[in-house]
Structures are given as C-alpha cells and as structure tokens.
C-alpha cells in the first residue's frame, strides 16, 4: 500500500517536473548552487523538485492554475547550517486526493528573502509568520509579517541551529 503511494507520488512529481520544464524553465533551480560540507551528510541531495527561490510565487500559481494543486498544506523551514542555506519545503495537494507534491527552494543564510504566498493563499499567513519568527526568513509581500510566538521585543531567531541553548538536554552538544 505504501508502495502504491510512493509510486503515485513519484509519477506526480515527474509529471509536474516535466510541465514546469516546459512552461517555466527559468524557475527550476540548478542543483549544487550551495556547497556541501566535507564528511558530513549531504542534506541537499533530493529527488524532489527544487525551484528558484524568487520564482516560488510564480511556480505555486502555475501549479494551482495548470496542474490543479489548489491546496497548500504545509510550509516548513529547515536550517542547513553546514551548507550555509535555508531550505523551504512546500506541500501541495489536489482536492481529488493523492499524495503531496513537494516543492523545495533554497535561500542563502545571509539574506533569506523570498516572495510570500499569502496574497494567493491566505492560509499561508500564519505559517510564514512562524518561519519568520523562528528562522528569520523574510517573506516579501506578506501583509503582516510580525513575530507570532515570541514577544515583539525579542531578538534572535530561536530555531536556527546556531542559537544558544543551555540545559540538561543540551549537555552533550
């Protein structure tokens, strides 16, 4: 059963990649624009579709208009400290069912900025604010980009891997 699902999601992915190649070729990101650390695990290697960060809004709208992925479910930010970048992972669905289409995009750690999806999917508003609060990722065009969990006076982005932590749990670090 899970084999069915993984086959299905691979097929969906290939279809979407082919369609993007045809209609938005400039949006597909060339892989390897961020260095991989020596010795450590290569977290950048992926079989999912990786797009250019600045084109994410165009890609998302294309997916909705042409490929019927009208449901934006999940936005995740990942701090890849060793690679010097943030990765943003978007999960889209079709209402007719089926597994998620995963779209990834990468941002330099020094200037994490990309277009917001909130103007097109208001459901992204809180998730983008969360990524801003905890990782410091700036979503351009977000109508209300404020901290969501921590208080406004707070400095720093606690979910970044280089944020100071202390306590019994972190003794081994």
């Amino acid at each position: 059963m899970s084999d069915d699902n993984s086959e299905l999601s691979a097929r969906q992915r290939d279809e979407a990649r082919a369609a993007l190649q045809r209609d938005l070729p400039f949006a597909l990101s060339p892989s390897g624009s961020f260095p991989s650390p020596e010795g450590g695990p290569d977290l950048l290697a992926t079989s999912d579709i990786v797009v250019e960060a600045q084109q994410i809004a165009a890609v998302a709208r294309y997916l909705r208009a042409s490929l019927n992925y009208i449901y934006l479910s999940n936005i995740t930010a990942v701090d890849l400290l060793a690679h010097g970048c943030f990765e943003l992972v978007y999960h889209f669905y079709r209402l007719s069912g089926g597994p998620a289409l995963t779209i990834k995009t990468r941002l330099p750690r020094e200037k994490p900025e990309l277009p917001s999806l909130t103007p097109f999917w208001p459901g992204a508003a809180f998730q983008e604010r969360e990524a801003y609060d905890l990782f410091g990722i700036v979503f351009k065009g977000h109508p209300d980009l404020r901290r969501i969990y921590m208080w406004d006076e707070f400095e720093g982005f606690p979910m970044r891997k280089d944020f100071v932590r202390q306590g019994d749990k972190y003794l081994s670090e």
């Binding site: 208080w151 406004d152 006076e153 707070f154 400095e155 720093g156 606690p158 944020f163 100071v164 932590r165 202390q166 306590g167």
Partner: peptide, 20 residues
C-alpha cells in the same frame, strides 16, 4: 517584563532565553 534576551525585572535580566 519582556526584554530582548528574556524576562526582565526592573530592567535586569532574570530569565535569559536559552539559559538558566
């Protein structure tokens, strides 16, 4: 009160975020 690095009482940090 809320400070930039944790809770403050009378302007003095008493409960730093990420520390004891």
């Amino acid at each position: 009160s809320y400070g930039p690095h944790g809770l403050e009482i009378d302007g003095k940090l008493v409960d730093p975020v990420g520390s004891l």
